[in-house]
Write a protein that binds this DNA or RNA. Structure first.
Lengths: 206, 206, 206, 206
DNA sequence: TATGAATGAGCCTTCATTCAT
DNA sequence: CATGAATGAAGGCTCATTCAT
């Protein structure tokens, strides 16, 4: 990319970033159309290619940007002393909602990376995604191991949490307007339920 | 569609059906390319249009076919007397795995329908999808209500089950080869864990 | 072409010839579609190519056939002793109407040759068309020169006759059903008018 | 269509308009090929669709343009006080020849509209054609009724004029180069002949 | 002989990308 | 810097032609 992009007025930068993220998030890499971004951001077609060599360059930039921005906010706004898994997870979601106010499609965009199927796109951003995962892992660094009930498998538990939260997120984005209160409510109920479930004493199997 | 399609050699029919399902499942309706199907099925471009009026016609056919085939196998192979939610769910997955031996992409293809965003595609297949959902509901008809622990919310529970299972499925398809044993293993562990979790007596919240 | 075509049942031959002529006449060479002929004649696609090597071969055959058939009928049914231009013209039209009973599109098809723009088609049939023109000229061989009024130019007169008659013909074919009586009526009125006009003594120009 | 088309250099606009009119006039709507226009106008395929949404949009535009341009010239260059049918007809032809200098295919293109058979095309331009016909009718508004000889039927007379003139026009376009002098000469001879013929005192029928 | 399944070149149209202004 | 005109490869689809049965 062309570093001069950052000399643009912040407001224009953001229009472009938001436009790109929205179109990529909703359509996936290959089906995302330049023309739709042009309309979304109100910025001429040529300019996109002036700053970002090509479509994959733009994609890479936006992935990088979304992750860097989220990581930054994680660093700035996460209470470091958190030692509880569920509380930490909620804090992370709060940070995402914070980011969402500046870049409305960051949470969906990041979630959409898992669905991406274009080999070209995956190849280009795998490093960035790894950075993101690492940062999330780090956010959980101080979390104490949960006292799981004996029948709870770690990996399965993690999967359950992450897939379900992703499902809830996409459900919310599928609505006409994202209702942050409703979203955070569902997330909290879900996590609280998972907490109780995972720590409960088992009943006899039938 | 042209009913003569069914006069083709079964093997060729299946190559076409599998090719279409694979490409649709991996790319979504709009991004699925005829050329890719041509390569996948080893059948000329013109022939697709000889049997299926156009792309949406082919899509509709394949959705219908996948659902009909799955429903048929559900009817043939599901032990009817099942009254347990988790057992029933496992039986359904077993049927899907059975179907997968003839039509390897049916499970992923059906799961991909939830992600479909093209209005044209959704419009064309909404009826079929409803039939499918109804059939699944029916499979659960004899299931007795689960004795949930008091802190377990029905809707959240359902979401947890379905999103997680979908996640596990996609994970397996993301591998080079689908490992049925590994997949069913994960599903079973997950469900068994959910059973215990949901029925457990809660411990005190900290 | 394959001469065995003539071993087919006459009725089938005619269905094919009529189908081809209709589709060619209505669409021109390039836009005439094999599938439409198949529907029109109820004869499989392969058979057309079995008897006529390709589209241009079929076209050539049909042009030749239409012209030969018309010429034959001209020879058989034209009163040879005719010496009047207008009467001769009417007789020719009568013969065309006769031909039309066996091959309904011959008159339109022959008229459509003038409109043909495809170089390939023109190249292939120019000889045949010349034969046709020659035969028509011959039909007028015994016609005595008309005593035109002095202001009537031969070539212009001919053009007027032929273009107008063609217009009237196409008009009739544009109707749902060709009404032979109506057609011959119009032709006769037109010719009678032309006769009077061309032989009249001029009035003073204003 | 995209109004920016008119911001193009006039010369390029005209190359595109002329290319489209030529290909449409010679092949009819359905058979007119984009590739041929590309070659004719020396303008890339994509550009046509940049300015005209699709083929039917381009066709509509060109019909509209041809008619508007001709109407404009009719308004600018027709001696209004004309009261004679034949003179008026010649004046109209003169205007067409004037238009032809800028847009060589306008006369043929407009004549070709009568032959158009594609329902889609007809549907799209029927309004425009009606405007054109109305304008022509208007051009004849001041014309005094002709004193026809008693044996001259109005409708037949009109048909004779219009079919023959169309025939003469197409004949001229069929030549390698359109010879305006030759064309106008023929038209004038024809009309002068028709004038005399239609007003003459009849001789006895034989 | 007769069929229609099968093919692939070509058509209209879209879209990432380039480039003159 | 900014625009959008311009390009051409690729996508969905049609159609003359071939070929196994």
């Amino acid at each position: 990319m062309n570093e001069k992009f950052f000399d643009l007025k912040k407001e224009k930068q953001d229009r472009m970033i938001n436009g790109a993220m929205k179109v990529f998030a909703l359509n996936g890499y290959a089906r995302a159309s330049t023309d739709e971004m042009v309309k979304e951001a109100g910025v001429s077609k040529g300019l996109w290619f002036h700053y970002f060599e090509n479509k994959i360059g733009l994609y890479t930039f936006v992935v990088d940007y979304a992750i860097k921005y989220l990581n930054m906010e994680l660093t700035a706004d996460m209470p470091a002393e958190n030692t509880d898994f569920f509380d930490t997870t909620i804090e992370i979601e709060k940070v995402k909602m914070l980011v969402r106010r500046s870049y409305p499609y960051v949470p969906l965009f990041l979630a959409s990376l898992d669905k991406e199927t274009s080999p070209e796109a995956l190849e280009a951003v795998s490093n960035y995604i790894e950075v993101y995962r690492e940062r999330i892992r780090e956010a959980y660094a101080n979390v104490e191991r949960i006292e799981f009930a004996p029948y709870v498998d770690d990996r399965i538990f993690d999967m359950t949490i992450s897939y379900t939260m992703k499902g809830i997120l996409e459900e919310e984005y599928a609505k006409d307007v994202f209702d942050e209160k409703s979203y955070m409510g569902k997330i909290k109920v879900f996590l609280s339920q998972m907490r109780k479930m995972s720590q409960a004493a088992p009943v006899e199997e039938p």
